[in-house]
Each structure stands twice: as structure tokens, then as C-alpha cells.
């Protein structure tokens, strides 16, 4: 096989030589490649094989029997999406919550990492870092329960605000729809910013100290060093994380919202994922919810491509 290929090399065009050398390279790395293949197998098994189920979005499948026997209905479920009164509200809430989360929640870990980097005491630095990323390990089920009691009429939030004289009557935050977005966004940022900062802290740690020394010699102050040395050095990391954040904009908040949602704040709290869960898993309309999920996936893909090309144009770094 190999010998054969080698014989043919001189006779063919250069691009073929490239292919042969690729094969040879592949052979050289065969042990490593087998490991990668395991990953590929995992992807195929858990990510690609279940995709077969997407066909139910074009079928009338009721959850009994085999998918392949269910009758085809074409675009019927997709048409129904556009006639669904809930869709507007659901998309508004999803985009509203996610965009605000991105807008407010994305810069905070960066700023936090920058400031943490400037701390002189390493010990204090470590303590702060640990404290801020610990909430990440609490599940939303637990944290949701804690938040519900904090935000209740006799909860700590009302106690503090009333003690400060900011409000007169206790407010039931979770049963006033207008507070819902703020609660969700603030609690999510509080839970995650310490964790998200870790990547930036790592990126900052890899910046060569010589750059800072040179900047200091040139007379740069602390803020100037932050601005002209640190930030440009982690620019690539920031844009990759930004692209990823945009890609997952439509599916980041299921468990959080599921625990904080109730029948009164419903108008501001139902998001696409919750809607899919309620229609599909609870009401058993599998086909319709698969169609909604598919549309959601397409929108997410579109947003990801948009962010990617934007980032490519802005600072030449992109996912692909």
C-alpha cells in the first residue's frame, strides 16, 4: 500500500503529494489518532446518532411505537410555530434575558480578572478567587430555593431594604413580573462571574513579565499597563469566549428559570427551553416541541456565524 503510493508520487501533481504526506503523517501519529477516534466515536454516539430524532419535527409522533412508522406531516409543525400566540413572548423573553446577560455579564469577569491581577497580596488574591467561584458549584435547584426564601416577603432582601428605609412595604419579588429579568440576570452573574474569570486569569498569567517591565520603564501607570499591555494580550481569549457566549445565547438559562418561574411571573419568565419542555415532555406533543427546538438551533447557529464573522473582521481571531 505504502510502497505503491510512493511509486505514484513523482507521476502526480503536487496536491496529491500533499495527500500522501498527510496519510503518512496520519500513520506516524496512529496511536494518537486512535485516541482522537475515541472522541469521534463519542461524538457520533451521543451527538450525531440522536440527531435522527430530529425527523419527528416533520412527523406526527406521539411518543408510542417507532419513529419510522409515524406519518409524515411536512412543514405543518413549523407553520404552527408562527401561529402560536406564545411564540412572541417566549422569543422576547429568551432574547431579552440572554442579551442583557451577555451585555452585563460578559465584561464583568474580564474587569474582575484585571483587578484581581493587580492585587499585591497573593494570599488575599487566592481567597477572593476561591470565594467568588464557589457559588458556581451550587446547583440551581439549591440556589433557586435559597433565592426564593431570600426574596420572600419575610426574606433577607426585604428586611435589608426596609431596614434602610428604601421601601415601606415588603415586595414579593418573584411574583412581580417586572423584577424577574433583573433577578435572573443578577443571580446568574453573581453565581458565575468568579468561575468565568478563571480563564482570563490564566490568560493574564501567561503574559510575559517583560512587557510590563518595558511598559513601566516607559512610564506607564497601573491603568495604562492594564489598558495597553494586559487587555491587548488577552484579546484573542476574549473574542473566542465571546463567540461561544453568543452561540449559546438561546440555551443558557433552563434550570435557573425552571426553579424561579411561577404562574404569576410567567409572562416574563417563559423562555424557549421552558416552553419546549412544557409542550414536549409534560404535554407529550413531541413533534411540535422538536420543531420549536430545531428552529431554536438554527437561530443559534446563525447567531454563532454572525459573531464569528464579526470577530474575524474586527480582530482576525475566530473559531473557524
Amino acid at each position: 500500500m505504502e510502497a505503491n503510493a510512493e511509486v505514484q508520487v513523482p507521476a502526480r501533481k503536487p496536491d496529491n503529494r500533499r495527500r500522501t504526506s498527510l496519510l503518512r503523517k496520519f500513520y506516524g501519529q496512529r496511536y494518537l489518532q486512535v485516541m482522537a477516534l475515541l472522541g469521534v466515536a463519542w461524538m457520533l454516539l451521543f451527538h450525531y446518532a440522536p440527531m435522527y430524532g430530529i425527523v419527528i419535527a416533520f412527523k406526527q409522533y406521539i411518543g408510542i411505537g417507532e419513529i419510522k412508522n409515524a406519518p409524515w406531516v411536512g412543514w405543518e409543525h413549523f407553520k404552527a410555530i408562527f401561529e402560536d400566540d406564545m411564540m412572541f413572548q417566549v422569543i422576547r423573553n429568551t432574547l431579552g434575558i440572554s442579551l442583557l446577560k451577555l451585555l452585563i455579564g460578559f465584561p464583568i469577569p474580564i474587569v474582575f480578572a484585571l483587578f484581581l491581577n493587580e492585587l499585591r497580596s497573593l494570599r488575599f488574591n487566592r481567597i477572593v478567587q476561591t470565594i467568588t467561584y464557589l457559588p458556581h458549584f451550587l446547583s440551581w435547584v439549591i440556589l433557586g430555593g435559597i433565592l426564593i426564601s431570600w426574596l420572600a416577603d419575610v426574606g433577607v432582601v426585604n428586611d435589608v431594604l426596609m431596614g434602610l428605609g428604601l421601601i415601606k412595604e415588603p415586595i414579593f419579588y418573584l411574583s412581580e413580573p417586572q423584577y424577574f429579568w433583573a433577578i435572573v440576570i443578577a443571580s446568574d452573574i453573581w453565581k458565575e462571574f468568579g468561575w468565568s474569570a478563571i480563564i482570563y486569569i490564566a490568560a493574564i498569567a501567561s503574559i510575559s513579565p517583560e512587557l510590563y517591565e518595558a511598559a513601566t520603564i516607559d512610564g506607564a501607570g497601573r491603568f495604562q499597563r492594564m489598558r495597553y499591555v494586559t487587555l491587548p494580550s488577552i484579546k484573542g481569549t476574549i473574542s473566542i469566549l465571546f463567540i461561544l457566549a453568543v452561540g449559546s445565547i438561546l440555551n443558557s438559562n433552563f434550570d435557573q428559570i425552571l426553579v424561579l418561574k411561577n404562574q404569576v411571573n410567567e409572562s416574563m419568565s417563559s423562555v424557549i427551553d421552558i416552553y419546549v419542555y412544557e409542550i414536549g415532555i409534560k404535554q407529550g406533543r413531541f413533534s411540535y416541541s422538536a420543531a420549536v427546538g430545531l428552529v431554536k438551533g438554527l437561530i443559534a447557529l446563525f447567531l454563532l456565524l454572525l459573531a464569528n464573522s464579526f470577530s474575524k473582521r474586527m480582530n482576525q481571531s475566530s473559531l473557524f
Binding site: 496512529r30 486512535v34 475515541l38 466515536a41 463519542w42 457520533l44 454516539l45 446518532a49 417507532e66 419513529i67
Partner: peptide
């Protein structure tokens, strides 16, 4: 030796893929 071990692992994984999808298609 190592190669064969990993290859059989891959094969094993692949066969589970087949087994799973086969199972899905035939609830009976």
C-alpha cells in the same frame, strides 16, 4: 499490542452505537 487494545475499544464503542440504534428501532 497497545494498538490492538485501542482498536478493540473503538470497535466495542462502535458496536454499542449499532446496538443502541438497533434497540431504538425495535422496541418489540
Amino acid at each position: 499490542m497497545k494498538k490492538w487494545l485501542s482498536l478493540t475499544m473503538v470497535a466495542a464503542l462502535m458496536s454499542t452505537v449499532v446496538a443502541c440504534s438497533g434497540g431504538n428501532n425495535k422496541p418489540e
